[in-house]
Each structure stands twice: as structure tokens, then as C-alpha cells.
Simulated scan of single mutants.
Amino acid sequence: MPRPLPHRLLAEYLGSLLLAALVIGSGIAAQRLSPGDVGLQLLENAAATAVGLYAIILVFGPVSGGHFNPVVSVVDAAFRGLPWRDVPPYALVQVLGCVTGAVLANTMFEAAPVSISTTERATLAHGLSEVVATTGLLLVIFSLVRTGRAALAPAAVGAYIGAAYFFTSSTSFANPAITVGRVFSDSFAGIAPSSVPVFVLAQLVAVVVAVPLLRTLHPAEPTVTAVAEGHVR
């Protein structure tokens, strides 16, 4: 049975908070541990994000689905896994959680609690990268869900995001909530406010691309038997 909405919203808020703290905090740590070596900084940031995301989804996934991402919530609703009426509150707490997580990360590293990023990322290449990164993320998640292998999603999502840090020029934000959250930290993982619309638009375009692809590749829903056997969350 689905958990009550307040419980699910709390899980989404806390998971989003920890996700932003993880991404931004590991970025700040990487800057300080490896000054002058951007490649090593990116590797440290990606590794921490990949393994941390795996753990966060394991903790909160059984409560809310472990979305922490408005586009994931939208696609889940499109496939009838989440009521459409729950999408706006999910998205709201996801954004609030990521903003809070950014403030927390800054504070943990004795930086100003709020520092608006000056890192410009709004290029055509970055926009294309966000379409690719977000589409790939949605394919990973919902290919597993729609084939009865949702239990593999935490590891698969962590692995994909870790890889996408390197194969996309945008370093794979793939999430409107974390995109907004990163504005509030002028650090390695930050993004300037002026670049946010390009990223969010690209992430929404990915929804339009991913949904028909998923319907084509995996048209059948998992069977009731598979659910009963515990193959689907």
C-alpha cells in the first residue's frame, strides 16, 4: 500500500537535501583536496555522488519511490506509478530539499551559507548534454521498473550518474531540482542563475523524448505475479 502523502513528501525532501549536500559538499571537498587538478576534482565529485546516490535511494525509495527529481516524478505519473495530483507537491519539496542541501553543504565547509554561483554553463553543447543525460537517466530507471527489475535501480542509477559526469559536457545535472539547488553554492558544482533555464528546458525536453521511447522499448507493464513475488517495488 502507498505510504501517506506527508510521509512520502518528507522522504523526498530529506532525500533531495542529502543529494544536494552530497553533490555540492563533495565538489567543495574536491576543490580543496586537489587544487589545480580539475580532472581529479571531477573524479572525486563523481565517485562520491555515484556511491552516495545509491545509498540515498536505498534509504528513501521504499517510502516515496526515491525520485528526488521532478522529471522522474512526471514520468512516473505518465506511467501511472504516481498520481498526477502528487507531482506538484513532490516537485516543490524536491526543489526545497535541494536548496536546503546546498546551504547545508556550504555551512559544513565553513563557507557562506548562501553564495550565488557565477559558473556560466548555458551553451548549446551543455543543453544537448542535458537532453542526453536526462533521457538516459529516465531510460535506466523506467526500463528497470517496466521490466520488473526495480530492485536494481539504486545501483544502476548511481552507476549511470557516475559515468555521465564524464561522458557529458554538462557533467549530467539531469534534474531540475538539483539544478536550482546548485545556484546557491558558488563552488565547483555550482551553476549561475542565468544558465538554469537552458538546463531545465533541456531536462523537460528529455521527458518528451524518453516517454515514447520507453513505451516502444518496454510496452508491457510488470505482471501482477511479478509484483507479488517482490520483483517490483
Score class of each variant (00 low, 15 high):
residue 85 R to N: 12
residue 211 V to G: 04
residue 133 A to C: 01
residue 75 V to H: 05
residue 143 S to G: 02
residue 218 H to C: 04
residue 144 L to M: 01
residue 71 V to Y: 01
residue 134 T to E: 02
residue 30 A to H: 09
residue 230 G to P: 03
residue 81 G to N: 10
residue 185 S to L: 03
residue 232 V to I: 00
residue 192 A to W: 11
residue 160 Y to C: 03
residue 90 Y to G: 07
residue 86 D to G: 09
residue 146 R to T: 03
residue 87 V to A: 13
residue 58 L to S: 05
residue 21 A to Q: 14
residue 124 L to M: 14
residue 226 A to D: 13
residue 165 Y to I: 07
residue 129 S to D: 10
residue 176 P to K: 07
residue 81 G to L: 06
residue 152 L to S: 00
residue 100 T to R: 05
residue 224 V to A: 15
residue 205 V to F: 05
residue 132 V to F: 09
residue 14 L to Y: 08
residue 29 A to Y: 14
residue 171 T to R: 15
residue 71 V to G: 03
residue 29 A to I: 11
residue 2 P to H: 14
residue 105 A to Q: 06
residue 132 V to A: 12
residue 197 P to L: 08
residue 137 L to E: 01
residue 18 L to C: 12
residue 7 H to W: 15
residue 199 F to Q: 13
residue 179 T to R: 10
residue 80 R to V: 15
residue 79 F to D: 08
residue 231 H to K: 06
residue 1 M to T: 11
residue 9 L to A: 01
residue 65 G to E: 01
residue 24 I to Q: 05
residue 25 G to Y: 04
residue 147 T to C: 02
residue 44 E to Y: 15
residue 137 L to Q: 03
residue 141 I to W: 03
residue 196 V to A: 12
residue 112 A to N: 11
residue 114 V to S: 03
residue 27 G to P: 06
residue 43 L to A: 12
residue 122 A to W: 13
residue 189 A to T: 05
residue 7 H to N: 10
residue 59 V to P: 06
residue 220 A to Y: 14
residue 199 F to L: 14
residue 28 I to V: 07
residue 210 A to R: 00
residue 39 G to F: 14
residue 113 P to Y: 01
residue 10 L to T: 07
residue 36 G to F: 07
residue 199 F to P: 08
residue 55 A to H: 13
residue 19 L to Q: 10
residue 80 R to P: 11
residue 88 P to F: 09
residue 32 R to E: 14
residue 130 E to Y: 09
residue 192 A to N: 09
residue 33 L to K: 15
residue 187 S to R: 08
residue 84 W to Y: 14
residue 231 H to W: 01
residue 162 G to N: 07
residue 143 S to C: 00
residue 90 Y to V: 04
residue 126 H to D: 15
residue 19 L to Y: 13
residue 224 V to N: 14
residue 227 V to Y: 13
residue 62 P to K: 05
residue 52 G to W: 12
residue 201 L to N: 08
residue 95 V to T: 03
residue 199 F to R: 07
residue 68 F to Q: 13
